[in-house]
Amino acid sequence: MTKLKINNRIYDLALKGHETLLEVLRDILGLTGTKTACDEAECGACTVLINGKAILSCITLAMDVENDDITTIEGISSGDDLHPIQQAFLDKGAVQCGFCAPGFILSTKALLDENPRPDLDEIKKSLDGHLCRCGGYLKIFDAIEDAAKKLRNE
């Protein structure tokens, strides 16, 4: 059995070994908030956090992250309260179709946890691996700046 710690819950899973983390999340556990738009590490939609770092779940073997802290989009809000990053994405109109949003939100969390005061260039670089076709990114930058402020209690 493989023990995966996802959103602070332990799952005991009988894995064959070749399953990607993305497959485990979506197909086995039904955590479909994690998306994929390419399945070959080019779009960023499958991003999750492993020990706080943003990684692509489509090219990560589930067995390789046994005992790590895995956080998906389902795990970052607490109760009824949205995470400030989620709230900022809504307030700033950063979400259109929403398919890429979970990936962007988790990468933003990894960025702001490490760098609470990123400048625009740092924001842009940190999101380079993510594709959004609807919105053109600018409102996502606004949302991240807004979330950063709120997280710094400014």
Partner: peptide, 23 residues
């Protein structure tokens, strides 16, 4: 007015279902 999106909460929490997610 720029009111919040009627479907916004589901989109940012990953709860919204697309046909892609349908089983």
């Amino acid at each position: 007015k720029s009111v919040p999106r009627i479907d916004g909460r589901g989109l940012v929490t990953g709860q919204t279902k697309y046909v892609f997610d349908l089983k």
